[in-house]
Nucleic acid binder design. Structure first.
Length: 128
DNA sequence: CTTCTCACA
DNA sequence: TGTGAGTA
């Protein structure tokens, strides 16, 4: 499962994840406190999120829109341990495809506005 | 400049 | 949750 490696490869900083998920740093840190996500720690105690974390955050965001509280989200994610990867073809979670699509869109948008794109640098490591 | 923790409106 | 203080 080399995919898990990529998925767990920590390479997103707080700022990147904020733009990717649309959540605020406060929320992300708060969710971490509630064991909804487990980012890695790198120099100076800075969080480093993996693809898996971002994916999870996206799920959390969806649940939030549905009016689910932390307890509920916690419950949902509990059934989703961490390495819950598809047995064969994974029709169950197409979150990866969604995420890829989302990330690409972000890149396009960034290009359109000709501005920003801190994620471009980070993302290049995925599409290289 | 960015992120971190802590604490309070 | 947001925000500001004080750091690293």
């Amino acid at each position: 499962m080399a995919e898990n490696v990529r998925r767990s490869m920590p390479l997103f900083s707080m700022g990147i994840v904020q733009k990717l998920t649309g959540l605020t740093a406060r929320q992300i840190r708060y969710y971490e406190e509630n064991d909804l996500i487990h980012p890695e720690r790198s120099d100076g105690n800075r969080r480093v999120f993996s693809f898996n974390d971002v994916d999870r955050l996206l799920d959390i965001k969806s649940l939030l829109d549905e009016g689910v509280n932390l307890a509920g989200i916690k419950r949902v994610l509990s059934e989703k341990p961490v390495e819950a990867n598809t047995p064969a073809h994974g029709k169950k979670s197409m979150s990866e495809a969604e995420l890829m699509n989302f990330l690409k869109s972000e890149l396009v948008q960034s290009g359109k506005f000709g501005k920003t794109s801190l994620i471009q640098g980070e993302l290049s490591r995925f599409f290289r």
